[in-house]
Structures are given as C-alpha cells and as structure tokens.
C-alpha cells in the first residue's frame, strides 16, 4: 500500500471473502472480514483462521468456503493458538526450505471467542510473540447460539440470558475493556476500529496490523442487526453513532504509544446510539432514565481516560 489511502484503488483488488456465504443479510461480520482482508497486498498469501462463531458456520459450510486463501477452523476457544500453530509450521518449514514467499496469518473470532472462552489462548499467543494478527469482530454477544450475553455485552443490554423482566434490567455488568488488556500485553500494535465512512480507519489499521512484525490485535465493532435489533440497512449509521457518541472510540497503540484516531466534532449523547436498538429499548421506558444517565457516565469516564492516555 502506498502511504495515501485510496478507496478506489483498494476496492479494485480481487475480493478475499466471496459472496455465497450464509451470514444474515446486513451482517457486520461480512463487512469487517472483507475489509480487513482487503488490506493484504495483492501478491501476498494468507492463512485465515476462524473461531467457531456466526462467521465460521457461515463462511465454511461444506463444501463451500468463502475464502480465497487457505483457511482453518478448529474450535471456539483456541483460534489464537491455532493461528500460532500455523505460524510455527511456517517458520519450521521455511527453515527447512519447504515453503517460500511471504504468508500472513490472520485470525477472526467473535467477542465470545475472544473476551471469554478464547481469552487464555489469545493471551498466550500474544505473549509468545507469534507473527500474527488477531481480529475480534465484536458484536457484543454470543450471536451464533442465539444472542446470549458475553463479557463484551454492554451494561443494560437485553440478551437471551439477560432478559428484561419485572426485575431483570438486562446485563448487570459493564463491558470488559479488552483492547486495554491487550495493550497491557506490550505487543507491537493494538487498535480499535469500526467500518465507517470510506473505510480509511479500518483499512489503515488492518494494514498496520498485518504488516507490523509480531503479534498484533484489532478490535473491530461489528453490528449485528439480529442481536442488536435494528433495521439491517442501518449498519453504517449505527456504527457511526457508536463512534460519535464515544461508545466505541477509534484509537491505536503503537509500541506502547497511544494515538487517538478520531475525535467527534460534536460528541453525541449516548442515547443517540441506544435509541435505534431494540436491545436497549427498556432504557427509554418511564422510570428508567437513571439507566441512560449511568450509561452516559460510564462512557464519559472511559472517554476521559482514553484522552489521558492519548494526550500523554
């Protein structure tokens, strides 16, 4: 990639995630995965790894693979270890003259496969320092099994295991800050991004992650029209609102140095992001104003902290 991002040039590249996969219409995962893979240089080969998830069951349903590159899925909780195994094989075979040429190793896992069940595997692979990229497409719940809460699900969100009832008010806990935990691994590159605008942010970060040597981590917001309960055509709008309310700030941490990638011209109130989504509907009922207030306080507090990191 030349230094200057050019959408026209990028979309001209052959796709690496083809049509014909079985993700729901309007699924953010398809957008995120094709967006990340687009950052690969045309001539470079890749091995793509998936954790069990909506993405996996939809993109490699026998005999249909939607990947143009080699691909492996093993289980739900081990995608980072799996990627590290492919990288280890590459090193060994290269040393022995059995493979040549550059090959990139890219894992995609959902938030469940990353924040929760695959967390140990991820932490281990990052610590060992494999030359790989781990991409979490974060749709904030276990979607494949029918929208159960994960540690990535935001507070108050209704899911099938945090339902709204006469007593239940959705998820009780705040979202785990996984990106920051990955920063604490002291790996060369960590970034948080989302599919917005002309994809410059997502593309550049994916490129940095792929072409920085060593373990790199991307956390990408990936709206799920089914689980979030919004009209499927509104993917771009929902994502933009997540960013402009600072619910999902865009930033990167390069060799331990934090950079803020985007500051909203006007930081929108969090309710702008919450209102269009069915999973937060109860927050707008009379008497529940405190929920929105507390959600706002949490976002403000996290945003302030991020500003401290990035302005230091």
């Amino acid at each position: 990639m030349s230094k200057i991002y050019n959408l026209k040039r990028e979309v001209e590249k052959p796709v690496r995630l083809t049509g014909g996969h079985r993700l729901c219409a309007g699924c953010g995962a398809g957008v995120v995965v094709s967006g990340v893979l687009r950052a690969l240089d045309k001539e470079d080969r890749a091995v793509v790894v998936n954790a069990t998830s909506c993405l996996e069951v939809s993109t490699f349903m026998y005999p249909y693979t939607a990947y143009m590159d080699s691909y492996i899925h093993s289980a739900f909780e081990n995608s980072a270890a799996t990627c590290s195994g492919v990288e280890a094989a590459y090193n060994a075979l290269k040393r022995r003259g059995k493979v040549d040429g550059a090959v990139k190793f890219i894992t995609f896992a959902g938030d469940g496969g990353t924040y929760d069940i695959g967390f140990q595997s991820l932490s281990g692979a990052m610590e060992r320092g494999h030359d790989m990229v781990y991409v979490c497409y974060d749709n904030e719940a276990y979607m494949n099994t029918g929208i159960q809460r994960s540690s990535s699900t935001p507070r108050f969100a209704g899911t099938t295991t945090t339902p709204i009832g006469s007593v239940g008010q959705g998820k009780k806990q705040n979202k785990k800050d996984l990106t920051e935990i990955l920063v604490a691994h002291n790996i060369p590159y960590v970034a948080q991004t989302a599919p917005i605008g002309n994809f410059k942010d997502l593309h550049t970060k994916a490129y940095n992650a792929i072409y920085t040597e060593g373990p790199c981590f991307l956390n990408v917001l990936s709206p799920c029209p089914r689980g979030w309960d919004y009209p499927m055509a509104k993917l771009a709008e929902i994502t933009k609102l997540a960013v402009d309310t600072c619910v999902w700030p865009l930033f990167e941490v390069e060799e331990g140095v934090w950079h803020l990638s985007y500051t909203p011209k006007k930081k929108l109130p969090v309710e702008d992001f919450l209102r269009p989504q069915g999973r937060f509907r109860h927050m707008f009922q009379k008497g529940n104003e405190w929920m929105i207030k507390e959600a706002q306080q949490y976002v403000d507090q996290k945003w302030e902290r991020l500003l401290e990191h990035t302005s230091a």
């Binding site: 959408l7 979309v11 995630l17 996969h21 219409a25 398809g30 957008v31 967006g35 599919p195 002309n198």
Partner: peptide, 10 residues
C-alpha cells in the same frame, strides 16, 4: 465506491 466495502456479501 462508498457502497462497495459496505456490502457484507461482496
């Protein structure tokens, strides 16, 4: 080309 990368189904 703004529409292209937003298509989940290529």
């Amino acid at each position: 080309m703004l529409c292209v990368p937003f298509c989940p189904d290529s």
